[in-house]
Design a protein around this nucleic acid. Structure first.
Lengths: 194, 194
DNA sequence: TTCATTATTTGCCAAATGGCAAATGTTTTT
DNA sequence: AAAAACATTTGCCATTTGGCAAATAATGAA
C-alpha cells in the first residue's frame, strides 16, 4: 500500500515563483520522491557531488564542515519550507565542501538531477522558477552568514534568537555554538547571563 | 571629443556566460556608461535603492555597513573583472542595507535598470547570461563571507592572503581588519608576528 | 622639501572567550 | 525503573583579543 502524502507545501512554495497548471503540478508530484531522514543522518557529504535537491517539508538541516583544527563547524541552518543543497556543487557537478545533516527527524521531497532535467524539458516556466528559487536561497544563505562577525558573542546569540525564534529550542547547543563562532561552554554561560 | 574606451574586459566577461553576436555586443557597449570613482567615493549607499549595476574594469570596491556599536564593518571586497551591486536590493527595488565604496580609484562600466531592461528585451540570451552572472556573484559572496568565523584571527589573515594575494597590499589595514573581525591593532600585531 | 594628514605600530592593562574536566541534567534504550 | 548515552552547566585558569593613547611611519599637498 502506498502511503498518501500531500505535497501541498512544496507545490505552494513553487507557485510563489511562477504559475503551473494542474497537469504540470501533477508532473512535479510524480517526479518528487519522499525521503525520511532520522536525526543525525546526512543528506549529502563533503567530498561528494550532490545528486539530489531536497525540499524540507518538516525538520531542520544544518550545513557544516571541519575547520583547520578539526572542529565541526555549523555554517547555517535550513528549516521547513525551503530547498536545501550545495547549489554550486550541484550545478557545477563538483564535490561539495560541506556536509548537509538532519538536525531533527526530517520529511523531505527530493528531486534527482534527471527529474529536474525532465521537468526543465517539459515545463516551459521551470527554469525561470528554479532560477528565482536559487537566487532566493543564495541570498538567504548570505544573510545567515554575514551578521555573525563584528558583534560580540552575546549580541550574536540575541540576534540569532530574534531572527530565528523557532530554531533555538530545536537544535543542540553545540551546533548553535559553532554557528555563533563560540564554544559550547561560552554559549552556556551567555544563556545563563541573560 | 569622445574618450575612446575599450570595453573588452566587460565583453569578454559576458561572453564567458553566453554567446553574443557583433550586433549584440555593440548594443551592450552603447548601453554601458563609463564611470570613474575616486578612492573613498560611494557607488551606492545603505538606505537607498541601487539604481545601477557596476562592472569593475579597474579598482577595488568594498561592501560595508555599521554594526550595533557604530563601527564601520567591511563585509567583503570586490575587485576588477566582477560585477558589483547589492543584487537583492537591486532586483527587489528595496533599500540596501550596505554601502558599496571605492577602496581605490576605480574605472567602471555601469548599467542602469532601464538599460538592462532594454538589453533584456532585445537580446534573447540576455536573461540567461544575467542569471548565471548573478548566481556566480552570490556564490562568491558566500565564499568570501563564510570561512571567517571558526578560525583564530591569524588563520583568518593567512587564509585571506592565500585567497586574495593581490588585495592585501592595496587596501587599508583598517578595512581588512574589520573584514577579518578584529581590530586594526590586533591585525598589526598579527602581521608583526609572522 | 616641508608641513599636514592619514595610516600603522606599539605599550599597557582590561575584558572576552577558550580549554579541560568534573558535575549535573536529559533523553533514550532495555 | 534503571542503565546507558548524550547534552548542558560550571569552576578554574590560560590565552586571545580589545581599548586607548602615544609614537612612528607613510602619503599627499603646497
Amino acid at each position: 500500500m502506498t502511503t498518501f502524502v500531500t505535497m501541498d507545501k512544496l507545490i505552494n512554495y513553487l507557485l510563489e515563483f511562477g504559475q503551473l497548471n494542474q497537469q504540470q503540478i501533477d508532473m512535479v508530484k510524480r517526479k518528487a520522491q519522499v525521503l525520511e531522514l532520522k536525526k543525525g543522518d546526512y543528506f549529502s557529504e563533503a567530498g561528494k557531488i550532490p545528486k539530489q535537491v531536497a525540499f524540507i517539508e518538516e525538520g531542520i538541516f544544518r550545513v557544516c564542515y571541519y575547520n583547520s583544527k578539526g572542529d565541526e563547524i555549523t555554517k547555517y541552518f535550513v528549516d521547513e519550507n525551503n530547498f536545501a543543497v550545495d547549489i554550486n556543487s550541484f550545478n557545477q557537478k563538483i564535490p561539495s565542501s560541506e556536509y548537509v545533516q538532519a538536525v531533527t527527524d526530517c520529511t523531505l521531497f527530493v528531486f534527482s538531477t534527471e527529474s529536474l532535467n525532465d521537468l526543465s524539458a517539459t515545463i516551459i516556466q521551470w527554469d525561470g522558477i528554479i532560477n528565482k528559487i536559487t537566487e532566493k536561497a543564495l541570498v538567504e544563505k548570505v544573510n545567515k552568514l554575514s551578521p555573525m562577525l563584528a558583534e560580540d558573542a552575546t549580541t550574536r546569540y540575541l540576534s540569532f534568537l530574534e531572527k530565528f525564534p523557532n530554531l533555538a529550542n530545536r537544535i543542540p547547543l553545540s551546533y548553535l555554538a559553532s554557528y555563533l563562532g563560540i564554544t559550547q561552554s561560552s554559549l552556556s554561560r551567555i544563556r545563563k547571563s541573560i
